[in-house]
Nucleic acid binder design. Structure first.
Lengths: 181, 181
DNA sequence: TCAATCATGTCCGAAAACCGCGAGCGGCGC
DNA sequence: GCGCCGCTCGCGGTTTTCGGACATGATTGA
C-alpha cells in the first residue's frame, strides 16, 4: 500500500492529508494528533509506505474552499477506508449528514439499523480516520452537549459554528452577529 | 491485491498455485488443505481478489519438471511472501537448502542468527505459505525423525525420498533399489 | 537412559477493558 | 408540582491483553 502525504494550513491548525494512487482520500487529521493517525493507519493498512506528494491533490483544493466558506465542497471529495463493517456503515452514514446540521448519536445508530448501539457509534466516530471530510463533528449528544472530538472539543465547536455561519443567508447572518454583541 | 489461481495434478494429489500479476509465486498448497491456504492468505494479504489464471504460469512448468525428476527446477521459480521479519528470514534460508539434503531445525535456527529459536523455526516452517518450492520439507528433527508437515508427514517422506532418488547417480540408485528389496 | 525444564516467535481464542451514549431515577431549589 | 442536575447502569462493537499451543533441542538431575 502506497500513500501520498501533504500538509496544509487551516484555521484550526496544520492538517495532514493522505491520498492513495487514485487520489482518493485515505486519512485526514490534525498535525498535532499525528500519533493517533499513525495508530489508525497501522491498524487498517499494516505498515503502508508513506511518501510526500509531488503535486497538490484535488482534496486539498476542496478543503481550502470549505474553510473559505464553500462548505459543500467537502461533498465532492472521494474517500475510502478500511475497518470493520459496522464502522464503515457508520462512516458512510456520516457523509449523508448535510453541512450545517447536527444529529445525535442515537439517531445515527438508528440509521445504521442498530437502534441501541449509540455508544458503539460513538466509538466508531472516535476511530474515524478521515476528519472533517467524513463529518464526525456533526454528531452530538441527544441533550445538545458536544461530547468529545478526536481533535479536541474546541475544534468541533468551531466546525459546527463555521458550517452554520456559512449556511445562513446574509440577513440572518447580520442578526446573528448583532445578537452576539 | 490480485492473484491468479491454477490447479495442477501431482503424484501427491492436486495442488493449488497462486501467482501475482508479475508471475511471482505467492502461495502453493495441497488442494485438500485449501482452508489452511485461505487462512494464511487472509492473514498476509487481507482479502485478496483471486481469479482463475487464463494462461499456465512458468511455475507450473517448473513444478511438473520437478516431479518428473528435475529437482533443481524449483530453484528458478520466483517467490514472494508477506509475514513477520523472523518468518521471512526463515523462509529465505529454506530456499538455500540444496535439493536432496536435509537439515535440522536447530541448524536452521543458527543460520537465521537465533541459535536457541529452533522451536520458533518449527512454527515459522508450519506457516510457510509456499509448499515444496520453499522447501520446508527438508527440515527434520536433530534426531532424524521427520516431525510434522502441514500436508501430512507421508508427503514429507515422499518428497525427501523423491529428491534423494533423483539426486543419486545411477549406480547408487541401483544399489539402493537392491537394498530395498 | 529418561523425564522434566526452559528458551523463542507467532498465531488463536476467550475474556476484559474501553468508549465521543442515553434512559431512568432521585434529589434539589424554585 | 416542575424542571434541571447528576448519578447509575446497561447498551454494542472494537481493541487490547493474556494464556496456550506449536513441525525443537540443549541441559539438568534422578
Amino acid at each position: 500500500m502506497r500513500l501520498f502525504c501533504e500538509k496544509l494550513a487551516s484555521p484550526l491548525g496544520e492538517l495532514i492529508l493522505l491520498t492513495d494512487e487514485a487520489g482518493t482520500v485515505r486519512a485526514l487529521d490534525f498535525a498535532n494528533y499525528e500519533t493517533r493517525m499513525q495508530r489508525l493507519l497501522a491498524l487498517h493498512y499494516g505498515r503502508p509506505l508513506v511518501q510526500p506528494a509531488h503535486t497538490a491533490s484535488q482534496a486539498q483544493g476542496a478543503l481550502e474552499a470549505y474553510f473559505a466558506g464553500d462548505i459543500r465542497a467537502l461533498d465532492m471529495i472521494e474517500t475510502a477506508n478500511a475497518g470493520r463493517m459496522f464502522q464503515r456503515a457508520v462512516w458512510q452514514k456520516l457523509r449523508e449528514i448535510p453541512a450545517g446540521s447536527t444529529i445525535s448519536y442515537a439517531t445515527l445508530a438508528q440509521r445504521v439499523g442498530r437502534p441501541r448501539a449509540s455508544r458503539a457509534v460513538g466509538a466508531a466516530n472516535g476511530s474515524n480516520p478521515i476528519a472533517i471530510i467524513v463529518p464526525c463533528h456533526r454528531v452530538i449528544s441527544a441533550s445538545g452537549a458536544l461530547c468529545g472530538y478526536s481533535g479536541g472539543v474546541g475544534r468541533k465547536a468551531w466546525l459546527i459554528a463555521h458550517e452554520r455561519r456559512c449556511l445562513m443567508p446574509l440577513g440572518e447572518k447580520a442578526d446573528q452577529m448583532e445578537a452576539a454583541l
